[in-house]
């Protein structure tokens, strides 16, 4: 059974067709890479899946539940976590408080007015931070972190509600190559251990080809390829999109 099914999804901004009639699906436990040049519509896809943007048309089903029209917070409660392309943490909080906030929300304790929040879920938050290798920074203000570390904290936050699907928009942007590999390897391990499905975008083709179970390619809002690493590499249309612009896979740095 597929975890997430997307059918004929479209979204325009003014005259720009950011996402144009896109359909794909993710199976449970699948590690799916969504690639494409800048402006291809990847983030827009993510934003529609997580409810931040409303599609113009099309259908998004998660475990049989239609997501269209639902708010981000409700979609999160259904078990879909996400990270942002431009990392977003709560700057006035420490690293661990960021994670605790997500845990508090998961436990539906947000409207409590009395007991101090610091004491809540600290153990579990430390565990999550340990998983992403950030336990040592737990009590530092999150605004002081290096960008790569922020991305890791974001991952810890996204894992807080034990999601069954994780959407990761450029999780390794701003990281050194070694870091990238480590992070994606970590995510891959989580996928295998917990049976989480992951949809992620990533500009480093080495990483994508090394880890992704399957790859789909967007260009100018259209889905142009869907397959394993080899078939994507050999796909002439994909080559056209990447090489035709005079760029290599690798040169596509960040957006």
């Amino acid at each position: 059974m597929s975890d997430l099914v997307i059918r004929q999804l479209s979204k325009s901004f003014g005259g720009v067709r950011a996402v144009n009639d896109v359909s794909f699906a993710i199976k449970r436990g699948e590690f799916l890479a969504l690639i494409g040049p800048n402006g291809a519509g990847k983030s827009t896809c993510f934003n529609m899946i997580n409810g931040q943007l409303q599609p113009d048309s099309g259908e998004i089903m998660f475990e049989g539940t239609p997501l269209r029209g639902k708010k981000p917070r409700d979609i999160w409660r259904l078990g879909i976590g996400r990270t942002f392309q431009v990392a977003a943490t709560f700057n006035s909080m420490t690293v661990i408080e960021n994670v605790q906030m997500a845990l508090i929300s998961h436990a539906s304790q947000v409207y409590r007015l009395w007991k101090p929040a610091r004491a809540l879920h600290r153990e579990r938050a430390l565990e999550l931070l340990a998983q992403v290798g950030m336990q040592d920074a737990a009590d530092r203000p999150s605004r002081e972190l290096a960008y790569g570390d922020v991305k890791r904290v974001e991952l810890a936050i996204a894992l807080a509600n034990e999601p069954r699907l994780l959407l990761m928009d450029e999780p390794t942007a701003g990281m050194a190559p070694k870091e990238r590999n480590d992070l994606i390897a970590l995510v891959k391990r989580l996928v295998i251990e917990r049976g989480i499905s992951v949809l992620f975008t990533e500009h480093s083709m080495d990483v994508v080809f090394a880890f992704a179970d399957r790859i789909i390619v967007l260009a100018r809002g259209k889905l142009i390829a869907d397959g394993d690493a080899r078939s994507i590499r050999d796909n002439p249309q994909v080559q056209e999109v990447y090489f035709g612009t005079g760029k290599t896979f690798k040169a596509e740095a960040r957006s």
């Binding site: 997580n50 709560f90 909080m93 508090i104 998961h106």
Partner: peptide, 18 residues
Amino acid sequence: YAMRAGRDSPLRAEAIGL
């Protein structure tokens, strides 16, 4: 904390169910 979360980053806050 939730108030400050909503202030610091409304997008992130909504994305963790707030």
